[in-house]
Design a protein around this nucleic acid. Structure first.
Length: 337
DNA sequence: AAGCCGTGGAG
DNA sequence: TCTCCAAGGCT
C-alpha cells in the first residue's frame, strides 16, 4: 500500500488507553492477534467472530454494488482483468475499459495473440500503463503454460507478471471461491478501525495485520470468500478514508475506533510530491501521443508535448526501458509489438 | 524498504 | 485552488 505519497499517511499510533478500556464489547485487538476469540477472552462467552461475519456478510448481501466482475456469469479472466485495472484506480473509471477489454479479448489467449502495444493502447487513460504490459504478459503465460485457463492456485497466480500477494488472493477468492486472506487498502482500513482502534492502518502492511486478518478469516471456503468481498465493500462504501458512514455501519457497535471516540490520527501529516512537473507527468504526456497514433511517431511529435528537453529525454528513456515504447532506427517511436 | 509508477474526481 | 485519494506491484 504505497500508492499514497509515503508521507501522506502518518504511522499508526498505539491503541489509546480509552480504546482498551471499552474494548470488552468490541473486537479485541489483543485477542484477535493471539487467535483467542474476543468475547471468550473478555467474558467466557462463545466466539463472537461468527456473529461478526454474519453482520458484515448480511450487510454485503443487501448493499453490494452490482459490478460486472461479480456477476455469476463472470469468469476468472474477467475477475483477473478487473483486479489489474482496479490497482490504484477507482471503480468508476475501470467500468467502461473493463467492458471494452472483455468484449475484445474474451479469453487470455485472445489478448496474448495481439501485440503488447495494443494492450497499452486499449488501457487508455487508466494510469500506470505498465499494468497493461504486465496483464498482456500474464495472458501470454496463461495461454502458454496454463492451457489458456486462469490458474486456481495461489502460488501459480503469484508467479504471473503483475500479480502480487493481494491480486493472487483476490483472484483465488473471488473467481474460485477459495479461502485466502485478501488484504487490500479497504480491508486494512476496516481492521485498523474495527480491531485496532486507530483511524488508519500503517503505511506498509505489517505482520500484525496479517495475523489479525488470518484470525478473523472464516474457516470454510465459501464463507471466507464472501467475507473477503464483504469487508472490502464495507471499506469502499462505508468505512472510507475521509468520511466514514458509521451511522449505517453494521459493526459500528463493535468498532474499537468508534468506541474509543473516533480519535483522529495524530502523526504529522507530511505532504506528497506534487504531480505537475514530475517525470510521471512527462511520461504520461509522451505515452498519450503514442497511444493516439496508429503508427510510429516522429521525435518532433514528442518534443511538442514537453518543453524541458532533459526531462523529456529521461522520461522517454524510462518508457523505453520499461518496454512501453520502442525506438526505431530513423528517430521514430512506437508502441511495442 | 523507501521510492517510483498515471490519472482524474471529490471535498 | 489545492490536497487527498482510488481493489498494488516492483525494485
Amino acid at each position: 500500500m504505497s500508492s499514497r505519497p509515503a508521507d501522506s499517511v502518518p504511522a499508526a499510533s498505539p491503541v489509546p488507553a480509552a480504546a482498551s478500556a471499552v474494548a470488552a464489547s468490541a473486537v479485541s485487538a489483543a485477542s484477535v492477534a493471539s487467535g483467542v476469540p474476543a468475547v471468550r477472552a473478555a467474558g467466557g462467552a462463545a466466539d463472537a467472530t461468527p456473529e461478526l461475519h454474519g453482520l458484515v456478510i448480511d450487510w454485503f448481501d443487501a448493499h453490494a454494488r452490482d459490478l460486472p466482475w461479480r456477476r455469476p456469469d463472470a469468469g476468472a479472466w474477467s475477475v483477473m482483468v478487473s483486479e489489474f485495472m482496479l490497482q490504484q484506480t477507482p471503480v468508476s473509471r475501470v467500468l467502461p475499459v473493463h467492458a471494452q477489454w472483455l468484449a475484445r479479448w474474451p479469453r487470455p489467449a485472445d489478448l496474448a495473440a495481439e501485440p503488447a502495444g495494443e494492450a497499452v493502447r486499449a488501457w487508455g487513460r487508466l494510469g500506470y500503463p505498465r499494468r497493461a504490459l504486465r496483464l498482456h504478459a500474464a495472458a501470454t503465460a496463461i495461454a502458454q503454460q496454463h492451457g489458456g485457463e486462469v490458474p486456481h492456485d495461489h502460488a501459480e497466480l503469484l508467479a504471473l507478471p503483475g500479480v502480487g500477494e493481494y491480486t493472487a488472493a483476490a483472484v483465488a477468492s473471488f473467481a474460485y471461491g477459495r479461502r485466502h486472506v485478501v488484504l487490500d487498502t479497504n480491508v486494512r482500513r476496516v481492521f485498523a478501525r474495527l480491531v485496532t482502534g486507530v483511524q488508519y492502518p500503517p503505511n506498509a502492511t505489517t505482520a500484525a495485520e496479517r495475523r489479525t486478518a488470518t484470525a478473523l478469516l472464516p474457516p470454510d471456503d465459501p464463507t471466507a470468500a464472501r467475507w473477503a468481498a464483504a469487508t472490502m465493500e464495507l471499506g469502499a462504501l462505508l468505512c472510507t478514508a475521509r468520511s466514514p458512514q458509521c451511522g449505517t455501519c453494521p459493526v459500528a457497535r463493535r468498532c474499537a475506533w468508534r468506541l474509543a471516540g473516533a480519535p483522529a490520527h495524530d502523526g504529522p501529516p507530511r505532504r506528497g510530491q506534487t504531480y505537475a512537473g514530475t517525470d510521471r507527468q512527462a511520461r504520461g504526456r509522451l505515452l498519450a501521443v503514442l497511444r493516439a497514433s496508429p503508427g510510429p511517431v516522429p521525435q518532433s511529435s514528442l518534443d511538442a508535448v514537453w518543453a524541458d528537453s532533459l526531462q523529456r529525454a529521461r522520461a522517454l528513456d524510462g518508457l523505453v526501458e520499461d518496454g512501453l515504447v520502442e525506438p526505431l532506427a530513423d528517430g521514430f517511436y512506437r508502441l511495442p509489438l
